[in-house]
Amino acid sequence: MVGQRIGYVRVSTLDQSTARQLDGVETDKIFEDKVSGKDANRPELERMIDFARDGDTVLVHSMDRLARNLEDLRAIVRLLTAKKVRVEFVKEQLTFTGDDNAMATLLLNVMGAFAEFERSLIRERQREGISLAKQRGAYRGRAPSLDAKRATELRAKAAAGVPKAALARHYGISRETVYAYLRVEV
């Protein structure tokens, strides 16, 4: 029995498009994530792994769409192939079944290492760009969630014993942000 052809596509931000990734590739179902590939904690990836069955084929545009670090890439491929699911990377023209030869395993490791390296370069360039923008005065960071008056009000309510979760709901901020405001010396 031939299984389903399952597509997995991923982009890092909501405004990016996944349209080109499996364009022209026949699939029965596609799972789409619009989150970073920095780790395997992605809702549609998890749904796709749960959905895939013995005999299915998972199609991914390229290895870096499935994972941005070698450890996650290897773990995801192993998890799928242990379920007797084929994993095909369209761009690299590589297929993994679990019965892979030494060359296929080497290519998975090398290509995965390049994806991880690329992510590191992206993060490094981002840090450098922010640093340069700060030096020029063009980058000031994120705007404060609360103005000075509301921050003072929050501190007074916290001192009066109002629960942090209630403060977070009232001001429309996270509890961690409440704690950050409470840590700041006035």
Rank of each mutant, 00 (worst) to 15 (best):
D100C: 05
G3D: 04
S145G: 11
E71D: 12
L22W: 10
S36K: 08
K149R: 11
F117S: 02
S145C: 07
E46K: 14
R136P: 00
G112F: 13
L66I: 08
S12E: 05
M63P: 01
D56Q: 07
E32V: 09
D33A: 03
T97K: 00
N41Q: 11
T95N: 03
A159L: 11
V162I: 13
K91C: 02
V90T: 09
V186R: 13
E118I: 01
K134C: 06
A82P: 01
S12V: 04
I30F: 02
Y179Q: 12
L108S: 09
R10H: 13
K84N: 15
F117Y: 15
E88N: 06
R169P: 03
E118G: 00
D100N: 06
A115Y: 09
K157T: 00
I49H: 03
E116K: 00
F51H: 14
A82M: 04
K83Q: 11
A158C: 00
A104K: 15
A40F: 11
N69R: 09
D54R: 13
N109R: 10
L80S: 12
R127P: 00
D39E: 02
T177K: 15
G137Q: 04
L146H: 09
R183A: 12
T13A: 10
A75F: 12
K38C: 06
T27C: 12
L167F: 11
P163A: 12
A158D: 01
A113S: 14
R78C: 06
A138L: 13
E46C: 01
K157P: 00
G24F: 07
V58S: 05
T57C: 08
Y171G: 00
K29P: 00
V58C: 05
L73D: 08
L182A: 02
K164I: 11
P163S: 08
G3F: 11
E185A: 12
V35L: 13
G112E: 13
D50E: 15
I30R: 06
R140L: 12
A52M: 03
L108P: 04
K29A: 00
R142C: 01
A19V: 05
V25Y: 13
F89W: 09
L79V: 05
V184A: 10
I49V: 15
R142L: 09
V60W: 07
Q135K: 15
S120E: 14
M48A: 04
D23E: 15
N41D: 15
Q4F: 07
L167S: 04
R74I: 13
V184Q: 15
L182C: 03
T27N: 02
Y181D: 02
A67M: 03
A156Q: 13
R78F: 04
S131E: 14
